[in-house]
Write a protein that binds this DNA or RNA. Structure first.
Lengths: 362, 362
DNA sequence: CTGAAAGCGCTTACAG
DNA sequence: CTGAAAGCGCTTACAG
């Protein structure tokens, strides 16, 4: 291996000297070229450069001039400054995904689908992780208000629709996912599944297997409330008490803590219905520690069908929706509104489908 | 449930009419207030408004004027336009994470750590998913060139350092993760673990258990090359052939396909060493389909220790590093360079630690 | 203590 | 076919 040489340094010396001779700043040797630089280099006006680079239909920069400009831009390594363009056009060509927890595998799948559809339509994607806390959701709203993006898909646990509308620029399309209320909104589109019905169905599945002492391991945030409602209705319909164990978060750690605590307190149950898969996995760990077999001693069900669900032992019974497909759908919704075709439609609600996946854990 | 009423529509009518009477545009009823609007409302200059809002130390807007401005800003719901601010200050207060695959659980953990440290320092975080393809990595570079962010942590599989340097604004701090070469760079910081050594150690662990026909299930992208090198060296040292099965991607699906194909072709082995956990999980699925027991018939090891690794049956032997901690570290590296304290340091290399986690699969 | 002015890099009427 | 000019909403010397 050759030791580092000084050739490259030497190579730049003449340039620096030349600049210094002209009395120019040497501290920022490679400022990015602007349209103005191209204009000077080609002898055209900055307007002509902008017109040529952006291929504006109405304009008619001569073929020859245009070619010269493009060549110079290429040679100088011109890249448009997006901040300037955004300021001028009040369009950022960027969409945002606001999610509570990137480490919950349900969200990356959603985002992937979103991003692929967004990109196909010429939009970049920004992702904001709120950690599922009120404070960071407010930060997200503030961030949205600053004009970073043209549209947003958001999963909010705490902040309500009024707060969202207040924060966001009038006319900016918003799709709220799994919003607590499915009431139609004047402006905001909502995409969700019928959480109550899904959990009700799952509860009935457990009841059908003869379980009577079913507890729900839930978290009273976001879709948790609706899922709990479905559980309560199913249990009431069957004439059994609906016991709910609240975890602090939709995470594995919180699920494990909650079930461990419940077991220590002498809680008795033959089935655990978790409000999402991460909680279910936490429950699985806690049950295992306490020596309970799944499903022989305690049946277990989750919600989301994250990739790990089918790899567990026992594989987890759960509720699946096609996150990637939903993400794609939402991005297309936003793009359609931005394209102008759907821009003046009132807020709509889209109920997506789901299916129960029965596996070994029940 | 009440049917939708028209009260809200009526409520907005007076405003629209009032605007129309004044001959103003009604299409964008609530343009966001700017500093100019506040200036007009308070009778101060726009400069004074900017100074007051930004709490500029050197300036001395009178206490009374400042209070009036802040009150007006609050009342009018003023939020600064970030595009304008960014254009002026050439600072975006945003950092980027460029990763190959958000659905690989290793990356969300990295990003979470990154984002928490970035936020603590006053930076927002943008995430770009390249899908591990050359085309999208180029898109990412182009996107970086447009000035969206002040600094970036990137995992590139295809694009090399020269291309990164060419794309990025001079002086913009870059941390490359797991870069193919660990040679020090003039400018770019590198953060990595010793992939070759880690895989070498893992191979020796398998050799120590008596395995001789070990195959590596790898993907020749990003850190794959170094990991393969470690495998080759360990096998050569032991005097056995180093067989490598190449998967198309670092995904579960690719791993499953590759092992299924290899088994169909009559490949014989007593252990599979996968270049990451997702590949290992794919291998597990393929082995299970073919009736092989793990670890009795075939031992299996992975790399990353994603959350699912310990939940598998059998639980997966793998290599762990603290992704969250690494993400935090990288963000702090960028922030320090942006803060000016480290801004003129040459590119440095940071080797992070890892550990082998032995579980049931070996 | 306060304001007029220049300028960040673009886009887009508008007038030759 | 081409360029001078205004302006997007800010920050920051600079001159009162």
């Amino acid at each position: 291996m050759k030791s580092s040489r000084t050739v490259s340094t030497r190579a730049t010396e003449p340039v620096e000297k030349a600049l210094a001779r002209e009395g120019k700043q040497v501290t920022t040797p490679q400022r990015r070229p602007t349209q103005r630089d191209i204009a000077i280099a080609t002898g055209m006006s900055q307007t002509a450069v902008s017109l040529a680079l952006n291929d504006v239909e109405s304009s008619t920069v001569s073929r020859e001039a245009r070619a010269r400009i493009l060549r110079a831009a290429e040679k100088m390594g011109y890249v448009p400054n997006r901040m300037a363009r955004n300021l001028q056009s009040t369009r950022t060509h960027t969409l945002a995904c606001v999610v509570p927890d990137l480490t919950n595998p349900a969200y990356p799948a959603l985002i992937r689908g979103f991003q692929s559809a967004a990109e196909a339509a010429g939009y970049d994607t920004m992702i904001f992780d709120t950690d599922g806390t009120l404070e960071r959701e407010k930060r997200a709203l503030h961030w949205l208000a600053q004009g970073h993006v043209d549209g947003v898909m958001a999963v909010f646990f705490h902040v309500n629709e009024a707060a969202v509308l207040k924060a966001v620029r009038t006319g900016m399309p918003v799709v709220q996912m799994e919003s607590q209320t499915y009431r139609p909104s004047k402006i905001i589109d909502k995409v969700y599944i019928n959480n109550a019905a899904a959990v009700q169905a799952m509860t009935q599945l457990l009841l059908g297997k003869g379980h009577q002492r079913i507890v729900m391991l839930s978290c009273h945030k976001g879709p948790g409330a609706e899922r709990e409602r479905g559980f309560r209705e199913a249990m009431r319909g069957a004439g059994f008490p609906a016991r709910i164990i609240e975890a602090e978060d939709f995470t594995q750690a919180a699920g494990e803590r909650a079930i461990t605590t419940a077991l220590a307190a002498g809680s008795q149950f033959s089935a655990v219905l978790a409000a999402n898969d991460l909680l279910a996995i936490g429950a699985m760990a806690a049950l295992r520690v306490s020596g309970k077999r799944i499903p022989e001693d305690v049946a277990l069900a989750g919600f989301d069908d994250i990739p790990a669900a089918q790899l567990l032992h026992p594989a987890l019974t759960t509720v699946r929706r096609d996150e990637q497909d939903i993400g794609r759908f939402v991005a297309e919704l936003l793009v359609a509104r931005l394209g102008g075709s759907d821009s003046d439609l009132p807020g709509r609600g889209f109920e997506m489908t789901y299916q129960l996946i029965t596996r070994e854990s029940t």
